[in-house]
Simulated assay, not measured.
Amino acid sequence: MRLANWLLIGGGAILCLVALAGWVGLNLFACGLASGGCDLYRFRFRWEDTEALMVFVPPFALGCALTATGMILRISSRSQQP
């Protein structure tokens, strides 16, 4: 059971990081394609882009749920040991 807890925590965290990295990469790609160019001070995330968000939010939410489940199972199994 210990291994399953760590797999849930690790897998969920990796899924969250991959989804976040994809979102940042997409925004950087879009910023680079802008005709005026892009610099660090004018770069911003496009939160109003719902088409991209519906691709990145579900894996991020699933990763958060997996991580939370793994942590809850780890805490509950730790409290049940004598």
Rank of each mutant, 00 (worst) to 15 (best):
Met1Cys: 08
Met1His: 15
Arg2Lys: 15
Arg2Thr: 03
Arg2His: 10
Arg2Gln: 07
Leu3Asn: 02
Leu3Tyr: 15
Leu3His: 11
Leu3Val: 10
Ala4Lys: 08
Ala4Tyr: 09
Ala4Ile: 03
Asn5Gln: 15
Asn5Phe: 12
Trp6Gly: 00
Trp6Pro: 00
Trp6Thr: 12
Trp6Phe: 15
Trp6Cys: 00
Trp6Met: 06
Trp6Ser: 09
Leu7Ser: 07
Leu8Gly: 03
Ile9Ser: 01
Gly10His: 09
Gly10Ser: 08
Gly11Glu: 10
Gly11Trp: 12
Gly11Ala: 08
Ala13Met: 10
Ala13His: 01
Ala13Asn: 02
Ala13Arg: 02
Ile14Gly: 05
Ile14Trp: 14
Leu15Met: 10
Leu15Ile: 06
Leu15His: 05
Cys16Glu: 06
Val18Pro: 02
Val18Glu: 09
Val18Arg: 11
Ala19Gln: 03
Leu20Gln: 05
Leu20Lys: 07
Leu20Met: 05
Ala21Trp: 04
Ala21Val: 09
Ala21Gln: 09
Ala21Glu: 11
Gly22Asn: 10
Gly22Ala: 12
Trp23Cys: 04
Trp23Met: 07
Trp23Phe: 14
Gly25Leu: 15
Gly25Trp: 13
Leu26Met: 11
Asn27Glu: 12
Asn27His: 14
Phe29Gly: 00
Phe29Arg: 13
Phe29Met: 12
Ala30Gln: 13
Cys31Lys: 03
Cys31Glu: 01
Ala34Ser: 14
Ala34Trp: 11
Ser35His: 06
Ser35Met: 08
Ser35Leu: 14
Gly37Arg: 04
Gly37Glu: 10
Leu40Met: 12
Tyr41Gln: 15
Tyr41Asp: 15
Phe45Gly: 07
Arg46Lys: 07
Arg46Ile: 03
Arg46His: 09
Asp49Pro: 00
Asp49Ile: 00
Thr50Ile: 06
Thr50Lys: 11
Thr50Cys: 02
Glu51Arg: 02
Glu51Pro: 00
Glu51Lys: 04
Ala52Ile: 00
Ala52Trp: 02
Ala52Tyr: 01
Leu53Val: 01
Met54Lys: 08
Val55Cys: 01
Val55Met: 06
Val55Arg: 03
Val55Asp: 02
Phe56Thr: 07
Phe56His: 02
Val57Trp: 06
Val57Ala: 00
Pro58Gly: 05
Pro58His: 03
Pro59Ala: 13
Pro59Ile: 13
Phe60Ala: 01
Ala61Arg: 14
Leu62Gly: 11
Gly63Asp: 01
Gly63Cys: 04
Gly63Phe: 04
Gly63Ser: 08
Cys64Val: 10
Ala65Thr: 03
Leu66Gln: 09
Leu66Asn: 03
Leu66Thr: 07
Thr67Gly: 05
Ala68Pro: 00
Ala68His: 00
Thr69Cys: 14
Met71His: 08
Ile72His: 11
Ile72Leu: 15
Leu73Phe: 13
Arg74Val: 02
Arg74Ile: 01
Ile75Asp: 05
Ile75Gln: 10
Ile75Lys: 13
Ser76Trp: 09
Ser76Gly: 05
Ser76Leu: 09
Ser77Val: 09
Ser77Leu: 10
Arg78His: 12
Arg78Met: 13
Ser79Ile: 12
Gln80Gly: 09
Gln80Leu: 12
Gln81Phe: 11
Gln81His: 08
Gln81Gly: 10
Gln81Arg: 13
Pro82His: 08
